[in-house]
Design a protein around this nucleic acid. Structure first.
Lengths: 406, 406
DNA sequence: GCAAGTTAGTAAAAAAAATTAGGAACTTTA
DNA sequence: TAAAGTTCCTAATTTTTTTTACTAACTTGC
């Protein structure tokens, strides 16, 4: 049997390609179905007669792509044999490339991680050596997992920094008219899907998290900086040149702090980790006091410490966080008016103070959002936890292959 | 030959349905193609062999859906007969329903208007009588045009006011568990596509206007009020409950005027026709002077008059307009950061002062937009003119049928 | 417990589509 | 102007698919 390729459909329409397309369709449908399917169900889905559906299914069975799962209990009539995906034949590689962290997972199609590897000594730089290091890391991860290359559908990569519309990194690894994507596709002989790490997390929230099954979602990342992944009609919005979702530089009122973009008033200067520390400094300079923070030790504090202090009951830390949540809520209220989302998901480090943050966001959002779009918009914090980004890459690939429901 | 239905594909997959689907595909392809096509080209497009493509094409020819257009000039080899759509077999009805205006056009598939009718005495109200009036208006327009019902693909309606996700008006005509859409589909026995009039205009800009072929567009309507149609990846964004694009209530800085939504600072209170008049009153009260306007005659002025004064060189009117453009630009800059559009199109009454307005918008937009997304974003005024909205409905229907390129 | 009803699956017949092969209609080159 | 090369198109052949008809495997009602 020919290899089943799930990205880049063969355009030629001869018999074998048509059959392969139908078999891929069967696999896709089985991968999305929560229960095994009978031949009549499969045939209906791929829009052929039962005899052809039978033939295609039997060939997939012979090649071990699918497994017979026994008879189905029905109310009447002869009971059909049902078939399910052989999950051991379909693996995906998920990769996370951050400034100082490299992480890869081998994930089964049902999203169970079977193997993973980290590199904490990694430092991202725009050099051929770094590109080589990434390539070798992925290669060795695959090798050590023991999974055969022909059982791998492809590689999904979530990467820090700007990614353009062609899913190629703007800043990194564009040597000799080649992009990271092209380079890796050649080296690994596997389809590659690359995107911004925030967008990858957005997809993971859609597939595994609370955004599952929701059509229109704003996934807002609050860590050191602000990030946003906009999902409309279940699709991630990329924009004309791949820069969509630049939430940090939205301005919604006058502001004093100078942003690294050269302007003032950007929401990114008012909300998130970096701003949190600035808020603390200003508060202490204004004479406000706290059990946990003193002005002369200011250089020893991380923004994490402020979040910790909130959990410990520090009134000043709470007040600062509350103000930020209020501002963030006001900015999000504008998004609600504009995009009418069904759900806003908070991800990132600030999730650790989610109850405090979301209450404050709710207060702020009412100041700007219209009543009608707001009543249908939920605000929730992610439940997925950290260290999931490489899995997010895998989700992204499976979604691109249309082998995953959401 | 069975009727070709272009909306709601028959799900049954027997032979005849498959053939009809292929024939619809041929029609769709011909409708989008700028030149007639040969049988080999058609066959390649519908992914069949040449003999089957020939058979399907010949049947369409026999039924007069398509016409032979003579031989094509080629570089070598036997010259193929080419086929084009018989535009006289495919008509669309476009309808515009406004507060005090009813307008319908019968449009050929190449978007030539063949007949149109207006009703200026119409007053929109949520009553069965009004619904009946609309129905009779559409029926009589079709009748008077002389076009046979079986030559009409469907009816596209652009309607004022909120329209939900199921493309049903929120405010109007929801009697007896029936919507306007359902009611008309029953009465006219034609497929109906309904949407908000601003979104319909957005689609018209995509199909006929300067947004043609552009992936990501913001169509901003500046008339008495502000309206926005967001087009991303060539699709109009509707939002979770159909309320997306509520640009008028975006807040981007503190404002004093009270909006009808109950808040202050909404951009709709600062920009567009109603705000223009308020700006004029305030300026005159502050002692500013103009050749064209006096405070004691303020009730006699329409916002149109202020736009006229701009064209006549009135410095005060210009200053007011310029301030509005600047503010609008600042708000749009946020949209640019967020959605990274390729193009912003200005539509609505303010197009009459487009040069003044766009210059001001450019100044404002630089205050908030990031450099990178702004460099790839054009700002232009619509060239389509007024009285096009019913044609916009037709565009919307053709787009929903996938019978139009953009 | 047996007939009647229902759904699965398959073998045979019929239909449709794809290949193959070759002629038609053209250009280019010698 | 004749031969070679190209593409279109169709007739004949082959392959594939659907349809039809039938058997298998089950439940339910009498």
């Amino acid at each position: 049997m020919d290899k089943l390729e799930f990205l880049s459909d063969n355009k030629n329409s001869n018999l074998r390609n048509r059959q392969l397309k139908q078999q891929r369709d069967i696999i896709r449908h089985l991968s999305k179905s929560p229960f095994p399917l009978s031949i009549p169900e499969i045939s209906e889905y791929i829009k052929t007669s039962v005899p052809t559906g039978t033939k295609l299914t039997k060939e997939l069975l012979k090649n071990n792509y699918i497994l017979a799962e026994g008879k189905k209990e029905t109310d009447n009539g002869r009971r059909p044999t049902t078939y399910a995906l052989n999950t051991d034949k379909f693996y995906v590689v998920g990769v996370e490339i951050l400034e100082k962290f490299l992480h890869a997972s081998i994930v089964r199609i049902d999203l169970d991680t079977v193997y993973q590897a980290k590199n904490r000594k990694f430092i991202l730089s725009d050099t051929p050596e770094c590109l080589d290091e990434i390539t070798r890391f992925i290669q060795s991860t695959i090798k050590e997992s023991g999974i055969q290359a022909d059982q791998i559908i492809g590689v999904g990569i979530g990467m820090t920094g700007g990614v353009n519309r062609q899913r190629e990194s703007i800043k990194f690894f564009n040597f000799d008219d080649n992009s990271l994507k092209q380079y890796l596709e050649n080296k690994l002989s596997l389809p590659i899907i690359l995107d911004n790490d925030t967008r990858a997390i957005g997809i993971a929230e859609q597939v595994l998290g609370i955004a599952k099954g929701v059509e229109n979602v704003l996934v807002i990342k609050v860590s050191r900086n602000l990030g946003l992944s906009i999902i409309l009609n279940r699709k991630t919005i990329v924009g004309g040149t791949g820069l969509a979702g630049n939430f940090a530089h939205i301005r919604f009122k006058e502001g004093e702090r100078l942003c690294n973009c050269g302007k003032t008033g950007c929401i990114g200067t008012e909300v998130a980790g970096d701003a949190l520390k600035k808020d603390l400094i200003e508060a202490l300079q204004n004479g406000e006091r706290s059990l946990y923070f003193q002005l002369d030790k200011i250089d020893t504090y991380q923004y994490h410490d402020i979040l910790d202090a909130v959990l410990k009951g520090d009134a000043l830390a709470f007040k600062i966080l509350h103000d930020q949540g209020d501002k963030l809520g006001q900015a999000l209220g504008n998004m609600v008016n504009l995009l009418n989302p069904d759900l806003i998901v908070i991800v990132g480090e600030f999730v650790m103070v989610k109850d405090f943050l979301i209450d404050a966001i709710r207060i702020g959002i009412r100041k700007t959002a219209l009543l009608e779009p707001l009543t249908t918009c939920k605000i929730e914090a992610s439940t997925l936890g950290r260290y999931l980004s490489s899995k997010a890459g895998a989700c992204m690939l499976l979604k691109a292959c249309d082998m995953i429901e959401y």
